[in-house]
Design a protein around this nucleic acid. Structure first.
Lengths: 232, 232
DNA sequence: AATCCGTGTAATCGATGCTTACATTCACAA
DNA sequence: TTGTGAATGTAAGCATCGATTACACGGATT
């Protein structure tokens, strides 16, 4: 945030005070788990106004803590964003794999499609969270290894799935690596078009979005599948 | 900029002085064309460090002008960014159309491919400029009509080209609208993957990028073309 | 030549990220 | 049980940023 559009944090949890002895210590000097709370607050801010809407001070405010406190847990705003990205990526991966678990095991191309669809659905449903896990502006690759690893494993998963599909003769001959990159570019691009507000210009309204997502995914898969009129 | 990584503006372009009457007035009170200079400075800042690296103050600094001066020309930082986006979009469109002019007129699908390639090349070459014309964070759609119009006309162009290709029987039967959106998602996604730093993870180095771009474009076109081994 | 208004300056405000010095409390050891 | 050090939060302050306001300059119109 560039200082312009930052609301004055309307809602504080009515921070109580006093502590010590044995009274129902309402305001302990040490916050229970500030790190966790800060990540949640930041995650919420992301959900409200995108990654730009995250400020350390506002997160501290929502946690009911002084502006300097977060720096005990995160050396910089970027570090906080890294942690946020890590959390978002964890959720992303969890949902993808959950959906994949329901897909039939004996149809690799179908599973490939399922992966793409799960990817698109999550991205459409959580655009702001998707944004921060996709832009490498956060988490420096070196730090935040969790994100990279989760992501890398997801990529490996699709790669294996695609290779299986090819091995079972479901694909036309092609450079599998390029197919994989093209597929990624397709779903990533679609998700990004949503985030970046391209859809209105393309006549894709909110309700159509998911249907369109499915449509372009099937179009792509038809393009790489062996029999042009089979897998859709 | 969030105050952290802002260099102290090492290089001032020896701010141009003089104008008016004929005496060597070294520092004219009125800048010649501050608006233009500010846009150029901002454009340069974008090229150096992305859209986040643009601050009104730094642009003013490079223009050799006081921090408040830019607000005579742009009511807000966003307004400045709008103008920058407009300029970038203009250049983008100009180059696309220039490249398209060299494509054979009688092969719509080839022209469609040329459009995609030109799009990808420009995006790879000017990633930071591409970023600001693609994110709707800048130019409010209502304002900055120039960007929207340039973009809309480019979209119309590809739509017409695709329709021609279909009319000439170069495509397999398909929902043209979805083909167009898929194509856009593909190239946009690829360009965005570059911007967002996804390529290292995908084993796409700088030199490979353009070749890979061509590869996935051809893959896509093969997928929608009538004879699977014709248009590439 | 006198005036007006577009354009730049100076000063200031509130917000932000981040740092430093200090205060408090928890946890572990004697 | 008691002491002490490390962890964690507070207070205060710096620099930068976007944005506003009052003022100064000067080119163009009349």
């Amino acid at each position: 945030m560039r200082s312009s559009a930052k609301p004055p944090s309307a809602t504080l949890p009515a921070k109580p005070r006093r502590r010590a002895a044995r009274a129902p210590a309402p305001k302990p000097y040490h916050h229970g788990d500030l790190r966790r709370v800060l990540i949640d607050a930041a995650l919420q801010l992301v959900g409200e106004g995108g990654s730009d809407a995250v400020s350390v001070r506002e997160a501290a405010r929502r946690a009911g803590v002084s502006p300097g406190a977060p720096f005990r847990h995160f050396p910089s705003r970027d570090a906080l964003m890294n942690a946020v990205a890590e959390e978002a990526q964890r959720r992303f991966r969890a949902e993808i794999e959950a959906l994949l678990a329901e897909a039939p095991a004996n149809n690799p191309l179908g599973r490939f499609r399922c992966l793409g669809l799960a990817y698109l659905r999550w991205a459409m449903k959580n655009p702001t969270h998707f944004e921060i896990i996709s832009s490498r502006r956060f988490f420096d690759h070196d730090k935040a290894a969790g994100v990279s690893q989760d992501n890398a494993e997801l990529i490996d998963l699709t790669e294996r799935t695609l290779a299986e599909a090819f091995a079972q003769g479901q694909l036309r001959p092609a450079d599998l690596k390029q197919v994989q990159i093209a597929g990624r570019a397709l779903v990533y691009g679609f998700a990004r078009m949503n985030i970046d507000g391209h859809f209105p210009r393309w006549g894709v309204a909110g309700a159509d979005a998911e249907r369109t997502a499915e449509g372009i995914l099937d179009l792509f898969i038809e393009g790489i599948a062996k029999v042009p009129s089979k897998s859709a």
